[in-house]
Amino acid sequence: MNFSERIFSRLELIPDCIEKLIKKIKHLSLAEEELFDIKLCLQEALVNAVKHGNKFDTNLEVECSIEVLDDRLTIQVKDQGAGFDEQAVPCPAHTENLTKTSGRGVYLIKKLMDEVKYFDRGSGVKMTKFINKENSREPKRREA
């Protein structure tokens, strides 16, 4: 099962886009916690794409697609910006960075999803959540 949504780079379009996408995966037997994490990662990836990727240029678009397989759900968010180096984002969970107010979106995606890959110089992110409990990496969140 595949589906996608496309929005122009306006923050106010994000909640509706997320609602439409979440509606399409609600029939999957996901735990409330998994759905929460997926929604949050969708939000963070879309906000980063609009804000940092397309730099609020309302002529530029963000595309979000979701692929659902038996054991996994893969979300791809792609903007039309120049990209970024996710390795260069300081870890906000380090004690010295705890009061920093940026970088937490990238970090949350890394921690809450099971596999995360940036592509096209960082202008796209592909994130996977295993939905088959045996493949799930739930402990990862507690190890954070």
């Binding site: 916690e33 937490r104 949350l108 507690r142 954070a144």
Partner: peptide, 16 residues
């Protein structure tokens, strides 16, 4: 809520 508590823990903000 437990899910929000988890977000505070994952980000280590529960230490702050």
């Amino acid at each position: 809520d437990q899910k929000i508590k988890n977000i505070f823990e994952v980000t280590k903000l529960h230490k702050l």
